[in-house]
Design a protein around this nucleic acid. Structure first.
Lengths: 207, 207
DNA sequence: GATTGTGAATAGATTCACAGCT
DNA sequence: AGCTGTGAATCTATTCACAATC
């Protein structure tokens, strides 16, 4: 499938939100919806919904609205989540463990196919139905499983070296939970989730 | 302290990033730094650093750069993290537990002062040095501890009702981990961290 | 000479408003 | 009649380039 590569992450994230809304609507048995009604129900902007959707094609019917099931399918294809994405977790500490057990990763379009840690007492134990392997085995583990996405959940001090190892092992994208400014490789897309920055944002508005 | 209330969240998050960089520099013994050098070291934009900082005041010395220790202190005051912020966790499941044990919440300017869950088998047990209380006790718990920030780590299905309870109990801001569009109360600031949306963003660029 | 702080210029995102379909 | 798709208008953010300052 061809797609624009220069869409803004903001618009892309909104597409994910729309998709979630459509799933809700579908579960409720709604089969058609207008942008305005969707905006009202989920606290979004109607013109932005139309603009975002139109960016990828003409999905609606003028005078009528959008077909919920059809639009949902189109958006899933668009995001590339019509198929299952194998993912790995690097670091089986608190955050890694929590993510391994996160229900969203068991019901959706992502599957945790391997977990790595460098603590020998953890290696060999089971977590979320997967046996933890040693971080040395990152490269063969990624190759065997065809993993595309790595969730990096290691301490900040070792995040850069683990990221490097993932890049060399041929991973395609990384979701990073370590609170560091990673030195990025151009061929690997990284999304950093920095809890302290979120907390500091909230702290600012407390004043 | 007075401050502009209309700063963009993007700029605010960058201030957090600068602060982290300054801490690194200070730990390395660097006492002065120019925007250009800081940009080079941490992969940022020099003109953006200057613009962001200048928005809050004149922190630098022309021809010289910025005093690391001084700027750090100013930014901490600016973000309101010169003092400790008491925070609570609602939901002691996988994510709630991981966050309770997250090192960032033990070394920084945030302190987890209470944890709530509605599972009677969890109530009364210890987690990260705090005894888990029943969710019924949210309001008195918030009052006693003076908690300002709540970390909402409950299943998606019950996120809205727990949010409502937090609003009624007088919390000031919420960091929400449930993958839902919360119906927001105007007086409570909310930041949602949605892992599935991040994963979907990465999936898009795999294609 | 070097570097900040800042107005002007550019780029990007959102909202408006309406022509074009059904 | 009603709602989408979209160009134009507005608003926001980033980058540039240089005068002001040390």
């Amino acid at each position: 499938m061809t797609q624009p590569d220069d869409i803004s992450p903001l618009a892309l994230n909104r597409i994910s939100v729309y998709l979630r809304c459509l799933r809700h609507l579908q579960a409720e048995g709604v089969s058609r919806i207008a942008s305005q009604e969707m905006a009202r129900r989920f606290h979004l902007s109607a013109s932005q919904i139309r603009k975002d959707l139109a960016y990828f094609g003409e999905f609606g019917i003028r005078g009528v609205g959008y077909d919920v099931a059809h639009l949902r399918e189109r958006l899933e294809r668009l995001l590339g989540i019509q198929r299952l994405h194998p993912a790995i977790i690097v670091g089986a500490g608190n955050i890694g463990t929590a993510l391994a057990l996160f229900p969203g990763f068991h019901s959706g379009n992502f599957r945790i196919v391997a977990i790595f840690d460098n603590d020998p007492t953890k290696v060999g134990t089971e977590l979320a139905g997967v046996t933890i392997r040693h971080s040395h085995e990152l490269a063969p583990g990624i190759e065997e499983t065809g993993a595309e996405i790595a969730i990096l959940a290691v301490p900040a001090e070792v995040a850069q070296e683990n990221y490097q190892a993932l890049v060399e092992a041929g991973i395609k994208s990384v979701l990073n939970f370590a609170p560091v400014q990673l030195e990025l490789a151009p061929e690997v897309r990284v999304k950093t989730v920095d809890l302290l920055i979120f907390m500091e944002e909230l702290a600012y508005f407390l004043q």
